[in-house]
Design a protein around this nucleic acid. Structure first.
Length: 200
DNA sequence: GATAAGATCATCT
DNA sequence: GATGATCTTATCA
């Protein structure tokens, strides 16, 4: 079941927590890949100094000011992309960053092309969609975007309706959620200590 | 194991 | 002109 608009039209902290265990789905090269979300961070509005929207409404941040359930994808450090999903009602610019996903059933994703790779070459260096990969965890927003071929072309996509990128409800499972400080935002004043990072 | 540095560019000042 | 919601590789210990 695809997640509804209402799911994202809630407090960002709730969405960040509830996205854990959900499945991020991406269509690329005619194949659909589903990966389990296991780590997220909440970026909460204009007051949150770590949130890009704290800079106000700019060409880059405008998508966050729009309705929930849309992607906010941006380039970071010149070479990586980060995937966020806009949360809360329109005009309340917030988003959840997807930091880590896991590939639940890697054997289903073997392709002939890569089957003969030896162990050493199966590192995150040559991560490709469909690669048989022993590192089943895609930890880090840049890495998972590279793997799932997510870039600025997917900025602003409506994930309630898109055939390229969406999120599905996972199996109902009881998961122990841990929380801690967000990564890489030391400049954010008092907001750097908020426990707005969630993982399982 | 820890720490440092380089890659590389959109965005904002 | 500086910076960053990152990642990899190199160099230490």
């Amino acid at each position: 079941m695809r997640l509804s608009r209402q799911f994202f039209n809630r407090s960002t902290l709730s969405v960040a927590r509830d996205l854990l265990g959900m499945y991020l789905c991406r269509r690329v090269n005619g194949r659909i890949v589903k990966v389990k979300i296991t780590e997220t961070e909440a970026y909460c509005g204009t007051k949150d100094k770590a949130c890009h929207a704290s800079k106000g409404l700019t060409p880059r941040t405008k998508i966050m000011f729009g309705p929930p359930g849309h992607t906010y994808v941006y380039m970071i450090y010149g070479m990586y992309h980060c995937l966020n999903v806009v949360t809360e009602k329109e005009g309340n610019p917030s988003a959840v960053l997807v930091r880590t996903v896991e590939i639940p059933n890697p054997k289903l994703q073997i392709t002939n092309k890569f089957q003969n790779l030896n162990y050493k070459s199966k590192t995150s260096n040559n991560l490709e969609l469909g690669t048989y990969n022993l590192a089943l965890k895609l930890d880090g927003p840049g890495k998972l975007c590279r793997y799932l071929k997510i870039d600025e072309k997917l900025n602003g996509v409506d994930i309630i309706k898109s055939k390229e990128l969406w999120i599905e409800e996972g199996k109902k499972e009881q998961v122990k959620v841990k929380r801690g400080k967000r990564i890489g935002i030391d400049y954010a004043g008092s907001y750097k200590n908020k426990l707005w990072r969630f993982w399982i």
